[in-house]
């Protein structure tokens, strides 16, 4: 993949992001932040590749990267779910 293609994908995805996010109501901005934060934990995919390579340096950095990214992903999605389940309609 060339740098140019990467930048193209990045730019288009950013536009999709702007379109989608501007439609999220202010009520849900906190779950939006924690949820999108969990998505940025996608770096976990890179961390897995690093950790799986073998070699001492990759071993150490890989372990730490996987652990940090996993906190981000697991914690992010769980806390978002915890918040969203509190938003309820009026019972009456």
């Amino acid at each position: 993949m060339t740098l140019v293609i990467g930048i193209t994908v990045f730019a288009l995805a950013a536009f999709v992001g702007f379109e989608v996010i501007t439609k999220v109501p202010p009520q849900l901005h906190t779950p939006l932040m924690s949820g999108s934060n969990a998505i940025s934990g996608i770096t976990l995919v890179g961390a897995l590749v690093t950790a799986g390579r073998g070699g001492t340096l990759a071993w150490v950095l890989g372990f730490l990267a996987v652990a940090f990214a996993a906190v981000n992903v697991v914690g992010g999605f769980m806390v978002t779910d915890r918040m969203l389940q509190m938003f309820r309609k009026d019972r009456r």
């Binding site: 993949m1 990467g6 994908v9 990045f10 730019a11 995805a13 950013a14 536009f15 999709v16 992001g17 702007f18 989608v20 996010i21 939006l32 932040m33 999108s36 934060n37 998505i39 940025s40 996608i42 770096t43 995919v45 890179g46």
Partner: peptide, 14 residues
């Protein structure tokens, strides 16, 4: 990784 580029761009925009 295209997956990282797309997801990162989404969060960056958000």
């Amino acid at each position: 990784s295209v997956a990282l580029i797309i997801s990162g761009a989404l969060v960056g925009a958000s």
